[in-house]
Amino acid sequence: MSDIRQLYQRIIIDHANYPHHYGKLACPDFVRTCRNPDCGDTITVFVSIDTDCFNELNFVGDGCAISQASASIMTDTLIDKTVAEATQLIQEFQKLLLGQHITTGDLGDSVVFGKLKQFPTRVRCGALAWHAVSDVIEEWGKRSGQQINFSK
C-alpha cells in the first residue's frame, strides 16, 4: 500500500489550506469553469493574457485538497509564462500524471503531483485546474486565429 503521506505532502496541505491567487479577477480576458461530474469538484480560472503572456491567473473552487492545491500550485507555475510555455507545461503535467518521463524542470512545485499516479482514483482531481487552463488556451488560440488542441 502506498504511503498516504506521499499524496498528502506538506506542500499540498498548505496550498489547500492557504491557496495562492484565490479569488475572482475584476476584468479577466478568459473565465473557464471545469467540473468533475463524478465527485462534484469545481475549479473556475480567471485569466488575463497580455499579448501572449499569462499576466494574471486566479482561481476559485470547491472540492478536495488535491484539486484545490493543484490549482493553487498551478497558478504559481504558470503566471508570467507565455502561452507557448504554458502549453508545453500543461503537456508536461499531463505526462507527469500518466507517470511518464518529463524533460523540463519548469513545472516547479507542481511536480509533487507525480505521486498521484499511485492513487489512480485521484488523478482527475489533480488534473482539473489544468484542464480549465488548457481550455482557455484553446479559446485564446481561436480568438487569435491559431489552432491549439490538447489531447484530453
Binding site: 500500500m1 502506498s2 504511503d3 498516504i4 499524496l7 498528502y8 489550506n17 463524478d38 465527485c39 462534484g40 469538484d41 472540492g63 478536495c64 485538497a65 488535491i66 492513487f119 482514483t121 485521484r122 482531481c125
Partner: peptide, 22 residues
C-alpha cells in the same frame, strides 16, 4: 476542514472502504 474525498482516500490507506461524494 477536510473534504469528503480526502477522508475517503485516507481511510482507504488504513484499509477502510467508504464512499464519498454526492
Amino acid at each position: 476542514g477536510i473534504h469528503a474525498h480526502d477522508i475517503a482516500t485516507i481511510l482507504d490507506s488504513v484499509g477502510v472502504a467508504v464512499r464519498a461524494g454526492h
